[in-house]
Amino acid sequence: MTTIGDFMLGGHAACDDLFAQAENAAGDWPRAEGALGVFRDTLLEHIAMEEEVLFPAFEDESGAAQGGPSETMRAEHQQMRALLEQMADAARAHDERRYLGAADTLLMLMQQHNMKEESMMYPMIEAAAGTRADELIAQCRAIELRSAGTCTCSRHGAATA
């Protein structure tokens, strides 16, 4: 049986890979914009699963909304969105220094964030979800398919196959 943690961990691994491709492409701007686009879609999709499905379920079940752990995670997602924007701006301006700086910042933020989610947040969500876990994973998969409908990248091509 797939747990929520296992399922979401796959998302973190995919984001790591796509991040590396986007960062390595710096300087080769058409390629960088493409790779950044795929990375960005995947990261935002992962964040959507958490913010639209997992966190609300956790907040309902545990009553921990205001000032709770999911609120901190949401704030860090906001920081990641801002850094994604900075990377996109820098790619459009062909500014390698700024692109790599934003990328490095995003990676550090993303990794310490993932570690907190993997070691604490997901186990807490799982405990709170109880028997609803499978239902929540199905809702997350629906988000994946939703983006797959509009996305033509190889990852989502494979996901629908």
């Binding site: 920081q79 801002a82 850094l83 924007e85 900075q86 220094r97 700024r98 790599l100 700086g101 934003a102 490095d104 910042t105 550090m108 933020l109």
Partner: peptide, 26 residues
């Protein structure tokens, strides 16, 4: 790696992503 990141992190907490905010490499 650590010192620029915590500097960035605390500045962000103070200000959010205001334009011209240094990133960790700045």
């Amino acid at each position: 790696r650590i010192v620029p990141f915590i500097a960035w992190f605390h500045l962000y907490t103070l200000a959010g992503a205001s334009p011209g905010m240094p990133n960790v490499k700045d």
